[in-house]
């Protein structure tokens, strides 16, 4: 079985939106989107000890994303394909899903996995756009996943409880962050990661036309960045042993007890 994990590299912290470009400031330290580590873990679990199985990371981002993607290789993934192209900067859902789908076309994986959301854009829909472009069945919000005899079975959480959905491979699945506890890379894994194949491809390599990528290929735009409406006063205290007493005092003051 060949499993492709779509992964995103996101800013580690100090997140801000650049007022000039109105894009997320990606100048600082970058890490593997934590939600994607669940997808990597699930891929590794499904691969198990099957020597013929392969886990390949597919990502879209600047060249230096490779550093952060290596974490997945250290966890045990086999190789990385990074779609990296200046012309892809500023891609929205429509443009990103198109480039990702073209990269996935090349791989022809039996299973394409996504994490629950991107923690920079709060986006939680990419899989549905990619599944439509690949014309493959989709199961999202999966909290439990099994594969047997070419059939996937996923337990999906919705607003009403848990559904159980089956789909034949090849398919696209988005996993929830409760599905597993991602492993920490071992020292051996970290040492070995650098030697694993890491391929960078351009939009041209994938046959993505210039007008379908980046801002030209995007259909949404950002007009302005503003402040959220002011919230009520919040107070924060450090527990010095009297935290419980302070909560009681506060509740009495607010007539909530």
């Amino acid at each position: 079985m060949k499993i492709a994990v779509c992964a995103k590299v996101v800013p580690e912290q100090a997140r801000r939106i650049d007022p000039q470009t109105k894009r997320l400031d990606r100048s600082g330290e970058q890490v593997l989107n934590p939600f994607d580590a669940n997808a990597v873990e699930e891929a590794l679990r499904l691969k198990g000890n099957d020597a013929d199985a392969e886990v390949v990371l597919v990502s879209l981002g600047p060249e230096r994303s490779l550093d952060a993607l290596r974490k997945a290789l250290a966890m045990g993934a086999d190789r990385v394909v990074l779609v990296s192209d200046e012309a892809a900067a500023g891609s929205d859902l429509v443009a990103s899903s198109y480039a990702l789908a073209r990269a996935l076309d090349r791989e022809q994986a039996d299973l394409v996995l996504f994490g629950q959301q991107a923690n920079d854009s709060d986006g939680a829909v990419m899989w549905a756009a990619v599944a439509d472009r690949l014309r493959r069945p989709l199961i999202s919000q999966v909290a439990e996943l099994t594969v047997s005899d070419g059939t996937l079975r996923g337990k999906r959480q919705t607003e009403f409880g848990y559904d159980v959905i089956e789909a034949p491979l090849p398919a696209v699945v988005a996993v929830s962050d409760a599905i597993n506890e991602p492993r920490y890379p071992s020292l051996k894994g970290i040492m070995g990661a650098k030697k694993k194949p890491q391929e960078t491809v351009s939009l041209g390599d994938l046959g993505v036309e210039a007008d379908r990528a980046g801002e030209a290929g995007s259909r949404t735009e950002v007009y302005a960045i503003g402040h959220p409406p002011p919230r009520g006063e919040t107070q924060r205290i450090d527990d010095d042993g009297s935290g419980a007493e302070k909560i009681v005092e506060f509740l009495l003051e607010r007539k909530a007890l």
Binding site: L93, A124, V125, D132, E159
Partner: peptide, 23 residues
């Protein structure tokens, strides 16, 4: 937005090559 409609909206965005803003 729900679990179901998020997937419908994004699938439709890809199908129609249309812009989707969420949340």
């Amino acid at each position: 937005a729900t679990v179901l409609t998020a997937d419908v909206a994004a699938g439709l965005a890809a199908r129609l090559d249309a812009g989707l803003n969420w949340d």
